[in-house]
Design a protein around this nucleic acid. Structure first.
Lengths: 569, 569
DNA sequence: AGCATAAATAATAA
DNA sequence: TTATTATTTATGCT
């Protein structure tokens, strides 16, 4: 990692690129919800188009809240070197409207210098949300933005949080007319030299949501308005420090997002242009408010946030470099809202490239911006980051976990940062979770599957587990980066590893074996050690494996029997 | 407990009551989402009003599935004594429209006589569902209703799962005047004698859901219509027998349930009458097909069947006796199935006595009616119940297990009854599972968490566990009731308990501690008592815990080493 | 993204 | 000390 920075910094950047095309991927959990492509013009507002949207799956009811976990989405964008880009670009993010809920959106600008092969994308927040009957779900949208100077990458993450929490925000937002998120990015001059270590210029632009004319307010004046209050980002050679500046601002949007969307015309998107023509602009998500059945749709809904990531020019060049926006939203909430949409307004504007999807708009809900702990460190090492977080926790402060980081002796904050960093670094190396998982499985033994990596990055694991995983990942990643310096080839060789250890690989019994085991079980659910040994021999499985099988089988029987036994008819 | 029954039975019942006010509590998980108050008129359709709604909490994203747990919701409605009520009342329930999803609703009429201090409500089904962005969530709504004669209490349970889903409902409900589910109850004659032992009459009605003509249809004609088709309930002295007839039919509704509802007229319901006056009619649920965002709503939705159970009057009288309607559905399964239905044909036909399987006609899904052990005994004592269960298992037969009652010397039937009774009594005391759990944790030690209570009530535990839990709960409950008699204050005081005991809570070692322990283990796997004490002190863990750790560690080593010894790999 | 269940491991019982 | 159980984790699939 270390070496990367310098390189990047030194890399000459082409400035004054005019247009950049960004692909914004909005994710919900692991699903890609939508891909937008944004054309950005350095000086002009860009238009946003929706690329494609893939639907999320719906899930289950468990309704079991279980608090406290965060999810991060990971992206696997292969990267290619990006050459020069304009340093700072104005970006506008339009907020889609959540139909039924407000989605917290976090916008983060990550000033990261990506290595040549990089294209990094980040995901940040997640949130689950729930709505209650009585009220429309409010999914607060929060934006946290950090922007870095130099060939930084701007990442806009729109993590959503719990709806509940946010509700307050939403409400507030609703009231406010000018809802909008203005991103500070706008106004950044291309002039800013990429390489220079000079501090980044900052200009703030506005990302405004305009409410649709109709129902609710009004106006596209937003564009007019310069900035929200103030997200000004001063990019500074964060790269050198490995620090990032974060900026957060939360805004509230007017309630009806939908409307806003429909009035797409009014929406401005900000663009980033890179030499490579990479721009990431956030677009508003389109959510269709679901029309309620039978009723006048009175409900308002949520909406979602996008994440826009600005990548440093270098990054932009990457063939692979994709920018993602991750939108976290509670599935349910989102879905709910989506379902409803009555009339989608699509606001696509000019789009260029590939896919696009229409925009659907209309939402009533509040847009909340939640502050986020978004510091991206370039290095894993602690400290060094300059979290010039402009944390402001918007209305819904709850979301943020600024929580004290440690719990049970585990530095959660540290883990969070590492997880975030890990992803960035992994992506920088152009490695997929699968590759990492396979390599680690080889060197560290099972328990490092792709799933595990995914879960770690999303922090969809317990702190304890994360704590255990962290050093392993850290070490491995450092090695991988080391080899990478010696060339891609070396990296790839490194990735194709060795032995394994640790947790025993989960055994997969053949159907036949299970049949045999079951027949033995029926005869005797508690075989003696001798019997176990024989059975193991017969089936050619490890004795311990067979022993455990019986243990688990007994357990399962007990668990299931409970059900059958009581279930009366 | 014992004494209650008789008392109840003998209790004079007021018949022909004209109005009944029901409190409907919709829960999602453990949260009360909304409380509706329904006014019922014996002869006329009742109107439903929304009482109050409490919002659910939102939760978190944990997203950790953790398979296999079920949730039960409990309601904490304080109760008041309800005196006489008309035996059978028409009840109309309005279904809120789920905006984006269909919500399974279970409506149950419980003819229960509540003790003075009671007002019980129950929760039954649960289901979880999730919606994805692209698609609207489909939450099947099912209704099960049981109605009882005498001063019964009608309990409408709307188990909902995710709150998100419900939002729609609420909204819908609020807005729509007409939509509603009219329960078949209408038309029941008060005339039916409650107490009589005469065999139940049966009539079958049809519950048909008509799909709305248009995509959305309209109308509030629903109200106009008196009743759905026809659930006639003939209460009969089922009580004496303790038998219930269940009827299930599933219907599919057109996509827009709302509409469907509006076209209530067309819907037919089937009715079953029993001597005992048990009738179970299934109703079609109204589901709103969520309109897909941006699209014409093409989807149809699922629907659900209702179950109506009629309870005999006597039962109703039990102070403790509560009638439950449980809607069993595999959460997922139900939901899924529901989602599918194109156009349901309902084919109910008349059924005769006891068991019947309702006709569910066209459903693709399984509407499952879970058989229930619905005999409520007033006493905890075993036997005496006459489960004239008319179990018919609709499509989804899997659910029912009609298990023999005893196993391993454990009287399952007894436990089932107790579990049911426990819930009723708990609710009568106005206590939540959480309160009970906390109180027990205090007095009995861990192992009596809210979850444990929930599982016990749901009998989602092994018979063995239930057997162990039963006496504890029984004793505790008796005490609680004792204190309650002396006033709520006393009860609440009682609930705020003492010490704890029981199984030691599983220790969770920190990674650091494990590291230390392992290092000691490597040096000496069999430390002396002195050493153990020192290690325990150093790590600040209980000495016993450390000792056990070494025991287990040695064991583990042995087990694993055996493997190597015997097997390959 | 969930589920079914293999594996790991704390607590107990014998 | 050994055998089991009770819980918790998390893997392998789909």
């Amino acid at each position: 990692m270390k070496s990367q920075d310098p390189a990047v910094r030194d890399a000459p950047l082409a400035v004054n690129e005019l247009s950049l095309r960004l692909q914004v991927i909005v994710m919900s959990g692991h699903e890609t919800i939508r891909v937008l492509e944004v054309e950005v013009d350095a000086s002009l507002p860009s238009s946003v188009q929706e690329g494609k949207s893939s639907e999320g799956k719906t899930e289950e009811a468990g309704a079991r809240p279980e608090a406290g976990k965060q999810q991060a989405a990971s992206v696997e964008a292969p990267s290619d070197a990006v050459q020069s880009l304009s340093p700072i670009l104005p970006i506008s993010v339009s907020l889609p409207q959540p139909p039924a809920a407000t989605v917290p959106v976090t916008v983060q600008a990550c000033p990261q210098v990506l290595s040549q092969e990089n294209l990094a994308t980040l995901m940040t927040g997640m949130l689950a949300q729930t709505g209650s009957l009585g009220q429309p779900l409010l999914i607060p949208i929060s934006m946290a933005g950090s922007i870095g100077g130099q060939g930084g990458l701007a990442v806009l993450t729109l993590p959503t949080t719990n709806v509940a929490t946010l509700s307050g925000l939403a409400a507030a937002a609703a009231t406010q007319p000018a809802n909008l998120l203005k991103l500070p990015f706008a106004g950044l001059q291309a002039a800013t030299v990429l390489n220079s270590v000079q501090p980044p210029l900052q200009t703030s632009t506005q990302a405004v949501f305009q409410p649709p004319a109709g129902s609710i307010q009004p106006v596209q004046t937003a564009l007019q308005q310069p900035c929200m209050a103030g997200l000004a980002i001063n990019p500074i050679n964060a790269a050198s420090l490995g620090a990032q500046t974060q900026f957060l601002s939360s805004l509230t949007s007017s309630p009806i997002i939908t409307n806003a969307m429909s009035n797409m015309a009014g929406i401005t998107s900000q663009i980033l242009t890179t030499t490579q023509g990479q721009v990431i602009g956030t677009l508003p998500l389109l959510v269709n408010p679901a029309s309620l059945a039978g009723g006048a749709a009175t409900s308002t809904l949520p909406l979602q946030g996008l994440q826009v990531q600005t990548v440093t020019p270098q990054l932009l060049l990457n063939t692979q470099g994709q920018i993602f926006a991750a939108v976290g939203n509670g599935a349910a909430a989102v879905a709910a809202s989506a379902a409803v949409l009555p009339k989608p307004a699509v606001t696509p504007t000019p789009s260029k490239p590939t896919t696009q999807a229409p925009a659907t708009a209309a939402t009533q809900l509040p847009v909340v911006i939640a502050p986020q702990p978004s510091i991206l460190k370039s290095t894993t090492s602690p400290s060094s980051s300059l979290p010039i977080t402009c944390g402001d926790i918007a209305k819904v402060g709850q979301l943020t976990h600024q929580p004290a980081s440690s719990e049970e002796g585990i530095n959660l904050e540290e883990i969070r940062e590492f997880a975030k960093n890990f992803k960035i670094r992994r992506l920088s190396l152009g490695l997929t979770q699968t590759q990492v998982g396979q390599a680690l499985t080889a060197t560290e033994g099972p328990a490092y599957s792709q799933s595990a990596i995914c879960r770690f990055e999303k922090l969809d694991i317990t702190p304890k587990s994360a704590q255990k995983l962290k050093p392993v990942l850290e070490k491995w990643l450092a090695e991988a980066e080391h080899w990478n310096q010696k060339g891609q080839q070396n990296l790839m060789e490194f990735v194709g590893g060795e032995p394994s250890k640790k947790r025993k690989r989960r055994t997969s019994f053949t159907p036949q074996a299970i049949e045999v085991l079951n027949s033995y079980f029926e005869k005797n659910s508690l075989p003696t050690g001798q019997e176990i040994t024989e059975i193991a021999k017969e089936l050619n499985y490890d004795r311990e494996v067979v022993r455990v099988w019986f243990c688990n089988r007994r357990q399962t029987l007990k668990n299931t029997s409970k059900i059958n036994i009581f279930q009366v008819q």
